[in-house]
Structure formats: C-alpha cells, structure tokens
C-alpha cells in the first residue's frame, strides 16, 4: 500500500469519554486510503461514531486520550496532535463534509441558506452562494431537482427525507475532499436511502476528482452499501477486529459475511 495514497493514518488511537468507565476507542491503528470508499461497521456502542468523530475532528483534537491521527493529501500532512486550532478548523471547514444521522438544519433559515452555510462560513458572497446551491440542486438528471421549490422555505417545514437530502447537499456544496457519513441512511425510506447512497457515490466517483475524494461511511444498512464499498473495517468494543481493511473479495457472501464478522467480534 503506497503511503502517499493514505487519507488517514491512525496509530494506537485511544479515546475515553468523561465519566465513562471503559474507553470508547482503545489502541486503534488503521490506514484509510485516499480515493476509496471505506465503511466502518459494528454493533451499536462499538466505537464507530467515536472513530468517525475523531477523524473528522468533531470531538476536538485535545480530547483524544492517546495515539495519533494524521490526515494526508497530496501536498499536505496534518498531525492532529501537533496542529494548531486554526489549521484544524481550516481542515474541517475546507476538506471535510459531514452527513450525520440527523440533518441538524437551522429551523428558521431557508433550505437554501442551510445548504449554503459552509460557503457562508468560508466567506463566499451571498450571490455566489445562491448560484452554487441552485446549480447543485438542479444538476442534470438529478432526481433531487424537486428540492428547488423548497429553496425559500424554512427548513422546519420540510420532511425528514427532504432534510436528510438537504444535509447531503450541505456536505457537498463546498466540494470537500473527504465526506464522513455517520448512519446517513438512518430513518429514511428505501427511496430516500437509495437516493442518498447513489448521490454520495456519484460524488465519490466523479470522473475528474475520484482519485482525491474519499468517503468514510458508518452504517448498519449493510445491504444498501455493500456493493459500493471498497474497504471494510469491523469494530468491536472500541477496537478494530483487524488493522487491515476487509475487501469485498474477502467477503464472499456479501453483507452476510460482514454480519458474521460482527457477531464473532461481539
């Protein structure tokens, strides 16, 4: 595995929540390749979301109990434990996009404004923000073009599926290098689940950027995502079942093989 192709390099990572008896992550060492789709699977409470939060700097670099996380691009290498707050914040602002279980839209702001928040935070002018949001929503062949009529509506007036789709567009709008998706299909019907999954893969497999874009996904919906994933990490009780990722070739029975691995870890 070429070192230059790594997106995240994790070494002996530990994480313990305050007032928690057992660590949420213990001795996690892994490499996540750049330009591939990686899934982290496991039972509830196994530490998947904590790992994703640590990688995406959601829990704060200072909260990591031990170990090291290095984020790499072609021309940049950032060690979370050594970087200053500004650098880490820039990383979160420009390199990462998040799709979480809940959309967490600002209820009094319009759908357009919610989708445009990442651009607003980066200081993009209002006109350009609106232009880019509308362009994203009305992309050719995109079945989400019906969201355009929601643009001026307050986010609180949208349905759950619409919110999740808006959250997805919010994660895509600033063209990040990495998307970290934590249960993005949760609480969605099969149509919306399929849409979110397809849209993420479409972003990931963009012919121009596919080698630089990485998708890290945490999900229980193994059937839905299995065919789209390149690398699988199986977690159990805060540890990885194996430091090296599983590939699809190693999982001949598909999602069922994954389930077996998860059960064995439990």
């Amino acid at each position: 595995m070429n070192k230059q192709t790594d997106c995240f390099q994790v070494e002996d990572l530990s994480f313990c929540y305050r007032s928690a008896a057992a660590p949420a992550l213990a001795g996690v060492t892994m490499r996540i390749r750049r330009g591939v789709t990686t899934a982290v699977v496991g039972l509830s409470g196994s530490g998947k979301t904590t790992l994703l939060s640590a990688l995406g700097l959601l829990s704060g670099a200072r909260a990591i109990s031990g170990g090291k996380i290095v984020y790499k691009t072609i021309d940049q290498e950032v060690d979370y434990s050594r970087a200053d707050d500004r650098t880490l914040n820039q990383l979160r602002m420009q390199q990462f996009g998040f799709v979480l279980q809940n959309a967490f839209l600002l209820p009094h702001f319009s759908c357009l404004e919610n989708v445009a928040f990442p651009l607003a935070i980066q200081g993009v002018a209002a006109d350009e923000r609106a232009e880019r949001v509308l362009a994203l929503l009305t992309a050719d062949g995109d079945p989400s073009s019906d969201l355009c009529h929601l643009a001026a509506k307050p986010a609180r007036e949208t349905s759950g599926g619409e919110r999740q789709r808006l959250a997805l567009y919010r994660a895509l709008i600033h063209d990040p290098q990495v998307i970290l998706a934590d249960e993005p299909l949760n609480n969605l019907d099969f149509i919306n689940s399929r849409f979110v999954c397809d849209r993420l893969m479409r972003w990931k497999n963009d012919p121009v950027h596919r080698e630089h874009r990485s998708l890290l996904i945490v999900s229980h919906d193994l059937e839905m995502i299995f065919d789209e994933i390149d690398d699988f990490f199986v977690m159990s009780k805060g540890r990885l079942k194996r430091a090296e990722p599983y590939t699809r070739d190693e999982l001949p029975e598909g999602a069922e093989s994954l389930r077996r691995l998860i059960r064995e870890g439990a």
Partner: peptide, 15 residues
C-alpha cells in the same frame, strides 16, 4: 434549543 445546529455549524468550521 439550537445546540445541535450550532454543533453542525462547528463541524463546518465556524469558530
């Protein structure tokens, strides 16, 4: 009441 949207804004890089 806005804590989670605020958290979301922080994930986007708001300081």
């Amino acid at each position: 009441r806005l804590i989670q949207p605020i958290g979301m804004l922080k994930t986007m890089g708001m300081e």
